[in-house]
Design a binder for these strands. Structure first.
Length: 432
RNA sequence: GCGGCUAUAGUUCAGCGGCAGAACGCCUGACUGUGGCUCAGGAUGUCGUGGGUUCGAUCCCCACUAGCCGCCCCA
């Protein structure tokens, strides 16, 4: 086994019929995005390493230890090597493209969605892969386009509720929080650090480490003994300035008006540095430890941090692999695609005529499988019964008379059908 | 990166220090132009890889690799 090549760790092949589910998910997503007037953007799968370091944050796990990074070698004396990285997420690339193409200059709010693979070098487990697919969208533009409006936040969340519903994902939960402006967040971080000094000694080892590296993460702690202590810590809502409070109130008011259910979770802090104000997650049980179907938030300062114009924005990324897992768990049976007809030539001499017949039927929009003339008829029947609703027998008699023999498997009824009527007959319901 | 469990036929899994097993699936025939149900027969394989212990290892030990689960973190 060690001699044969295998898909590398954390990557996998998607095969039929599972790929049908992936395609269905993507088709529904594209349809919903189109109705909300989003356009598709496709950014490169790899980018300059500095892009992710600056946007996602040097100290995040993603950048500090999970990126696939390599030194692209110089091809000429005059060329420098360049550090490149497979994208670990797509928001940075979208914002880079926004800046690079001056999309803000259009004066229009940019509403962009993407579907594609992302890469993180993590330990694989259920719902977590080293190459995984995300479906995401970003709403971004200069302030004059209304990009900063809480209505945009609410609209995105309402769209996500619609998308999950249309995908058939029942039982999702929307968790919502505000981490405030960059200034609010800095102020809260200070308050948290100060409060932790007195109590951190009584907390778990992880929290003692987090208290230094990333105090916000302490709020995520799941150790039961730590919960009473966490309850005494300052809440980020108290560190929000008036504008941030008003923004968050406007988001929830719009959600209430639209009838989108949510729960406030003032402990919801997200791992990427660029988030400001609204942050959210849609979660679902049954995904094990990876219960987040999607996550996102507002990033009002990201464009400027990357050297671009002021361009507030909000976006999300949805784990397509996790959508698939959730849907597979919800669906009792995966619908098997079945061909409309199996064309069975009787004898190799009839192969050419069989191709012509299959071509005719396929042009009529039918899903057709083509057998092989060297098969014994029994073999053709066995094969056909597994993958098609009907079998069309093409022997010398049928070819000469132009009247084909058709058998429908569900009923066992066999009839003769003139070639001119064959396509219409096969398109009909599978009765006689 | 850390911890637990696992690795045997195409698949799901039994198994035992001494000839490699079941179910399903697959192939052949009963039926030379008729599937499903039935019956008869057949092939399933470097027992994850490498090393060690042993007269002998699929089994015991070690390492590696991979998968699953948890931690960390995230989608």
């Amino acid at each position: 086994m060690s001699q044969t090549l295998k898909a590398v760790r954390g990557t996998r092949d998607l095969l039929p019929p599972e790929t049908a589910l992936w395609n269905r998910i993507e088709a529904i997503a594209r349809d919903v995005f189109a109705r909300y007037n989003f356009g598709e953007i496709r950014t490169p799968v790899f980018e300059d390493t500095a892009l992710f370091a600056r946007s996602v944050g040097e100290d995040t796990d993603i950048v500090s230890k999970e990126m696939y990074t390599w030194e692209d070698r110089a091809r000429a004396q005059s060329e420098k090597t360049q550090s490149l990285t497979l994208r670990p997420e797509n928001t940075a690339g979208v914002v880079r493209a926004y800046i690079e193409h001056g999309l803000g200059e259009s004066g229009q709010l940019q509403k962009l969605y993407y579907i594609g693979p992302q890469f993180r070098r993590e330990r694989p487990q259920k719902g977590r892969y080293r190459q995984f697919a995300q479906i995401g969208a970003e709403v971004i533009g200069p302030p004059s386009t209304g990009s900063e409006s809480p209505l945009r936040d609410a609209e995105i969340l309402e769209m996500l509720a619609t998308l999950l519903d249309e995908l058939g994902i029942t039982g999702w939960t929307l968790e919502l929080n505000s981490v405030g402006s960059a200034a609010d967040r800095a102020r809260y971080n200070d308050a948290l650090r100060a409060a932790l000094v007195a109590v951190v000694g009584q907390m778990c080892a992880d929290c003692q480490r987090r208290a230094v590296t990333n105090p916000l993460r302490v709020l995520d702690c799941k150790v039961p003994a730590d919960q009473p202590i966490i309850a005494t810590l300052p809440v980020i809502a108290d560190s929000l300035d008036e504008a941030s409070q008003a923004h968050f109130a406007a988001v929830t008011a719009a959600l209430d008006a639209a009838g989108v259910p949510y729960t406030l979770n003032h402990r919801l802090v997200r791992g990427l540095d660029y988030y400001t104000r609204t942050t959210f997650e849609f979660t679902h049980g049954g995904l094990g430890a990876q219960n987040a179907l999607l996550g996102g938030g507002r990033y009002d300062g990201l464009s400027e941090a990357m050297g671009g114009p002021k361009a507030p924005g909000i976006g999300f990324a949805m784990g397509e692999d996790r959508l698939v897992l959730t849907l597979q768990a919800l669906e009792t049976a995966q619908p098997q695609t079945v061909a409309d007809a199996f064309v069975a030539p009787l004898g190799e001499s009839l192969n050419p005529a069989a191709l012509a017949l299959a071509r005719e039927l396929r042009h009529a929009g039918l899903r057709v499988e083509l057998g092989e003339g060297s098969f014994r008829l029994k073999r053709s029947f066995e094969a056909a019964d597994k993958i098609a609703r009907r079998i069309v027998i093409l022997g010398e008699d049928e070819l000469q008379s132009g009247i084909l023999t058709v058998k429908t498997f569900s009923t066992g009824i066999q009839t003769k059908v003139p070639r001119a009527e064959l396509a219409a007959f096969l398109a009909g319901p599978a009765k006689g």
